Simulated scan of single mutants.
Amino acid sequence: MSQASYELKAEAREQVGKGSARSVRRNGKVPAVIYGDKQPPLAIALSYKDVYYKIHGGGFLTTIATIDVDGKKIQVLPKDYQLDPIRDFPMHVDFLRVGKNTEVNVNVPVRFLNEEKSPGIKRGGVLNIVRHEVEFHCPANAIPDFIEVDLTGTDIGDSIHISAVKLPRDVKPVIADRDFTIATVAAPAGLKSEDSAAATEEGEAEAAPEE
C-alpha cells in the first residue's frame, strides 16, 4: 500500500496570481493550491526546503500528506508540481483534497522479480521494459507503492501483459480496452543477427533456380 503519510506546515495566501507567486518565492517559500472535495481552492505557501526534499525523495505523487494550514489539518494527495527547468527548484505544487471516498488516477512504478528464474534471460535474452509505470484508478488511501511483475518461467519471445499481474483490491488499470504489454523478453543482438542471416540464406536458397 501507499507509503507512510507525512505532514507539512503551510500558511494561507490571501492573494493569488503571478505577482503573488513571485513574492512567495522571494521569501523562500513555494506557492501551492489545495483543491477538490467540492470545496473552494485554497492558496497556500510551503517551506521550500520541505517541498524540495519531498519531491526529490521519491514517491511524492503517490503518498498521502497532511497539510497544517495555520492550525487546520487537511489531508491531501500531491497531483502535480512544476520545477525550474534550469535549476530543478520547485516552483508550484497542486494538491487534491482527500475525502473518505476520493478516488484518483495515479502512475505506479513497476518492479520486476525473479530475473534469475527466467530461462530466456539465462540464455542471454534481454528484458525489454515497455512500461516503467502504469496508470491506475484506485482509492486515494490505497495507492500501491509499486506493482510486481514475476519473470519466473519467461522465455525469449514472451510478452508480459497487465492481465498477468496480481493487483490489489480496487486498483484497476486506466487503460481498460486492451490487455497491454508491460515488458517482453527479447532475443540478444547476436542471436537476432544469426536468425536474420539464416532467414536470408533460406530465402536465397528458395529463390535459386533448380539446376
Rank of each mutant, 00 (worst) to 15 (best):
P31R: 02
V33L: 14
I34C: 04
Y35M: 09
G36M: 14
G36T: 11
G36L: 14
D37V: 04
D37E: 13
Q39Y: 08
Q39N: 13
P40F: 01
P40H: 02
P40A: 07
L42G: 07
L42V: 13
L42Y: 07
A43H: 12
A43Y: 06
I44L: 04
A45G: 05
A45F: 02
L46G: 00
L46A: 05
L46P: 04
S47R: 00
S47M: 03
Y48N: 11
K49T: 15
K49C: 04
K49W: 08
K49D: 13
D50M: 08
Y52C: 06
Y52V: 09
Y52H: 10
Y53S: 09
H56F: 14
H56Y: 11
H56P: 05
G57K: 06
G58R: 07
G59M: 00
F60G: 05
T62H: 07
A65D: 02
T66M: 06
T66E: 10
T66F: 06
T66I: 12
T66C: 04
T66W: 04
I67A: 05
D68F: 01
D68R: 05
V69F: 05
V69M: 06
D70Q: 13
K72N: 08
K73Y: 05
K73T: 09
I74E: 11
L77I: 05
L77C: 02
K79R: 10
K79A: 12
K79Q: 12
D80L: 13
Y81P: 01
Y81C: 05
Q82E: 11
Q82A: 14
L83A: 04
L83H: 00
L83K: 03
P85H: 08
R87C: 08
R87V: 14
D88L: 15
D88Y: 13
D88Q: 15
D88W: 11
F89Q: 15
F89K: 13
F89T: 15
M91C: 14
M91Q: 15
M91T: 15
D94R: 01
L96V: 12
L96Q: 12
L96C: 08
R97G: 03
V98E: 00
G99A: 12
G99E: 11
K100I: 13
K100E: 15
N101C: 07
N101Y: 13
N101H: 13
N101W: 13
